[in-house]
């Protein structure tokens, strides 16, 4: 079975991944194969079957609303690629 319409450029954009033209070609072909294999799930009758998101769903997991120690500003910024004035620095967002 062939893969459905799979636009590697569009999906790479959604995933915020810059790919080289060679990567687009190789990944596109490999993913075509994998998607073809995955098509076999269409054979299964799933009428009336509930989806499983989690093997042992835990619901309403609460904890007491009390302050607890957490990372300091300095610790949180320790691994930052760029920082200034206790903040993460990113490229300009607004003109």
């Amino acid at each position: 079975m062939s893969a459905p319409d799979f636009n590697i450029k569009y999906v790479a954009h959604l995933a915020r991944l810059k790919l080289s033209p060679e990567e687009e070609q190789t990944l596109g072909a490999q993913l075509g194969n994998i998607l073809g294999y995955i098509e076999k799930l269409k054979e299964v009758d799933v009428t009336g079957v509930e989806p499983t998101a989690h093997a042992f769903p835990m619901v309403n997991v609460f904890r007491a609303d009390e302050p607890r120690p957490s990372l300091t500003n300095e610790e949180a910024l320790l691994n930052a690629p760029r920082r200034a004035s206790g903040l993460f620095v990113v490229p300009k967002v607004v003109e």
Binding site: L41, V44, V46, V49, E50, P51, T52
Partner: peptide
């Protein structure tokens, strides 16, 4: 894909 896979996961 995703929802169908989660249903087959149940099975």
């Amino acid at each position: 894909y995703y929802l169908r896979a989660q249903k087959v996961r149940t099975l």
